[in-house]
Amino acid sequence: MTRTNEVLAYIVLAAVGILGPVFFENYIQQIAVLWIMVLMASTWDITGGQMGYNSLGNITFFGAGMYISAVVQISMGYDVAEYTAAFGAIKVDFTDTQYFTGIALGIIAGGIGAFLIAILFGIAVFGLRGPYFAIGTLGIAVAAGQFVGTIQYLGGGSGISMPVYPGGVDQRNVFFYILCFIITVISHIFLKWLYSTQFILAINAIRDDEDKAEAMGIKTGIYKVVAWSIAAFFMGLIGAVFGNMIGFIEPIEVAFPTATFGIFMVAMALLGGKGTLWGPILGAIVFHIIKETTWTLLLGWQWVALGTLIIINIVFFQQGIVGWLQEVKPEWFGLTVDSTSKKSEA
């Protein structure tokens, strides 16, 4: 994007981010989820769009961060096994300091834990290409949900209720809203920096021709794992926040929702235009607005409509909004196109 367009976009986003919850107090949670969606789509795009490795399992890190933070937070005052075995019968009674240090440590641990898990899985799956990678990562996400559901220490299939926020509902909403917004902003700044370094060139090279990149001596294996781990770190952070925001976590629907958030992030990145910094953001915003405004009108058919939307998006509108704009209005993006080049010498 050209400089002025970008500044304009930031002003609009900052205005929505800061003024949105002030004027639309009732929708504060929906706006918070919007930022989560933006983060998910943008971090998916690191591997999916920029590196050409289409993961269907990034949601694993969301759930991992959530569960890690839960364990860290509860262990601030209780024995985790006892707590989960009681199925919410134990009411958490944390002091304010206990709660806030717990949540801070939990979020950080969630991010770092997810990061480490991504390194581990990354080594296992990045020798795979194409369909095997996508299915392998999907397998990891499905297995993660099933697996956590069998661990009694983590509450098994019935889940864990998170420590209760010490304060009123309104204050609680604002608190989690700010956390979501700030983490998303940090992730965006980080990506913007990342995409200005040589890192972006290497992962783009992997996308365009991995064998060539290998033959040129690029250590593709390390780049792939690092790219995925970065995505995992932010997914872990936001997963930890989301778990606290919802207040109750369980493996299939909340922590590892392969069929909702897991596919949404891919659909959003594709809708906006993958492989661009702004595409996933735009895609997430459009997707979320469509979803939230039509949800209540569709009366039970909303999931069907969503599945249809995803198919239409993928089949008919692959390049996404930003990709389409780049074709129609390249000058908006500062792209140089020399139309005479194809016919010239050599």
Binding site: N54, P131, V266, L270, W303, G307, T308, I314
Partner: peptide
């Protein structure tokens, strides 16, 4: 028919979307 000559991920994702749709219906 529309995804058959597109790249691999397109068919994978289109059928994944179909899978969600069928489950829900």
């Amino acid at each position: 028919r529309r995804v058959i000559d597109k790249d691999m991920f397109t068919s994978l994702l289109a059928t994944f979307g179909l899978s969600l749709l069928m489950q829900q219906v």
